[in-house]
C-alpha cells in the first residue's frame, strides 16, 4: 500500500474516532492513539524515510495537511465535549521520591572546613590574608621568640610533643606563624593562620592532642587596643549577628602585653543567659592582646635588621579554637568526632 493511500486511511479512521467518542476519556484515548507521541501520525512521520525522493515533497505536504486537519478535528470534538482543553495527564503521587539509584549522594565539606571557611570569609572581608606555617617546629619559634623562656612555668600551658632523635617538636599553638611571617615579610601585616596544633593532653570529650586554632596578626603604625576591639566587634557581628557585643577580661599570654580573654554576647540568648552560655550571657571566643615588644625584638634578631622597631610599629594578635566554635555552633558534645569521620556524623553536620 502506498504511503499516500495509507495516510488517507488514517485520516478517515481518526476523524471517525473523534466523532464517535462519547466522553472525555474515550476522546483522550483516541487522541493518544492517533496524535500521541507513539501514535499513528508519528509513525507516519517515520515512514517518510522510505518515500522515494521524487515523491517526498508531495508526501510531506500531505502529511502536514493531515496533521493539521486531525488536530483541528480533535480540538473541535474536545470543545463539544465541554471539557477544558488541558487534558488530564497521568496522576502523580507528589510525595513519591526519586528512586535511590537515580539519586546520587551529594558530599559535604567537613565541619571544621566550614568553620575555617566562615572565619576566612569574615576576616578576609576585613582584609586578613591567609598564611600557613610548618607544623613541625623548633624551640625558637615555638617558645623563645614567643617570649616563653626555657625553664619557665609559662611553658607548662604549652606542653609539646618532641620528635625522636632531634630537638624538633610539633607546634603547640599557631602563634608560631606570627614569628614566621614577620621573619619573611616587612610590616605592615594583616594575616590569619588557621592550622593544626598538638598538645600532649589527655584525650576525652572536650580535649584532644591534635586540634586546630586560627591565629590573627595585624601590625601597622599606631595600632591600639581600640583597633583590636573594633576589629573583633565587626567580626563577632558577622559571626553571630548584629547587636552582638565583645568584652575583654585581663589575662596573660607570654607573647602579648596587655593580654586579654575575649568574650562575645551569647548568640543563642543575646546575653540573658541560657544553656549555651551556661547562664552567664557570654561565650568565650579565645585570647588576644597587643604583640609583646619582646616578640618584635626576637624577630629583628632573627632577621638581622630593625624591620619591626617597637617604637614605630605596634600590633595586635588573637587566637580562637576551631573545634570549640564548631561544637558550639552545631551542638556537638564530643571533640573526638571531628577526627573520626564517621559518615553518619559528616552527613549530619
Amino acid at each position: 500500500m502506498s504511503f499516500l493511500d495509507d495516510l488517507q486511511t488514517l485520516r478517515t479512521e481518526a476523524l471517525a474516532a473523534f466523532g464517535a467518542a462519547k466522553d472525555a476519556a474515550a476522546l483522550e484515548q483516541a487522541r493518544i492513539r492517533f496524535l500521541g507521541a507513539k501514535g499513528s501520525l508519528k509513525a507516519f512521520a517515520k515512514r517518510m524515510k522510505e518515500v522515494p525522493p521524487a515523491e517526498k515533497p508531495q508526501a510531506g505536504k500531505q502529511l502536514n495537511e493531515a496533521s493539521a486537519e486531525l488536530e483541528a478535528a480533535f480540538a473541535a470534538a474536545q470543545a463539544a465535549c465541554g471539557k477544558p482543553a488541558a487534558a488530564s495527564g497521568p496522576k502523580l503521587d507528589v510525595t513519591e521520591p526519586l528512586p535511590p539509584e537515580q539519586r546520587p549522594e551529594i558530599g559535604r565539606r567537613h565541619p571544621l572546613t566550614r568553620t575555617v571557611d566562615r572565619l576566612r570569609e569574615l576576616l578576609g572581608a576585613l582584609g586578613f590574608e591567609v598564611v600557613e606555617g610548618p607544623e613541625v617546629e623548633d624551640e625558637r619559634h615555638n617558645f623563645d621568640d614567643l617570649n616563653i623562656p626555657a625553664d619557665h612555668p609559662s611553658r607548662d600551658s604549652f606542653d609539646t610533643f618532641f620528635l625522636d632523635g632531634s630537638r624538633a617538636l610539633l607546634r603547640s599553638q599557631t602563634s608560631t606563624v606570627q614569628v614566621r611571617v614577620m621573619e619573611s615579610r616587612k610590616p605592615p601585616l594583616r594575616v590569619i593562620a588557621p592550622g593544626r596544633v598538638y598538645r600532649p593532653d589527655k584525650i576525652d570529650a572536650t580535649h584532644a592532642s591534635t586540634f586546630h586554632q586560627i591565629e590573627g596578626l595585624y601590625v601597622d603604625r599606631g595600632v591600639s587596643m581600640a583597633d583590636l576591639r573594633g576589629t573583633l566587634q565587626l567580626f563577632v557581628e558577622g559571626l553571630f549577628g548584629a547587636g552582638t557585643r565583645v568584652r575583654f577580661r585581663p589575662s596573660f599570654f607570654p607573647f602579648t602585653e596587655p593580654s586579654a580573654e575575649m568574650d562575645a554576647s551569647c548568640p543563642a540568648c543575646g546575653g540573658s543567659g541560657c544553656n549555651v552560655c551556661k547562664g552567664t550571657g557570654w561565650v568565650e571566643l579565645g585570647g588576644c592582646g597587643m604583640v609583646d615588644p619582646n616578640v618584635f625584638l626576637a624577630v629583628n634578631r632573627a632577621r638581622g635588621d630593625n624591620a619591626y622597631d617597637p617604637e614605630v610599629w605596634t600590633g595586635f594578635a588573637f587566637g580562637f579554637g576551631i573545634e570549640r566554635m564548631a561544637m558550639r555552633r552545631h551542638g556537638i558534645d564530643d571533640l573526638r568526632l571531628f577526627l573520626e569521620n564517621d559518615l553518619r556524623f559528616l552527613r549530619q553536620v
Binding site: L126, G127, R190, Y218, D220, G222, M225, A226, D227, L228, R229, G230, T231, L232, Q233, L234, V246, R247, F248, R249, P250, A260
Partner: peptide, 11 residues
C-alpha cells in the same frame, strides 16, 4: 578594659 572603644582605623 571596658573603656576601650570599639573603633578601628584599619584601612
Amino acid at each position: 578594659y571596658h573603656r576601650i572603644p570599639a573603633e578601628t582605623a584599619m584601612r
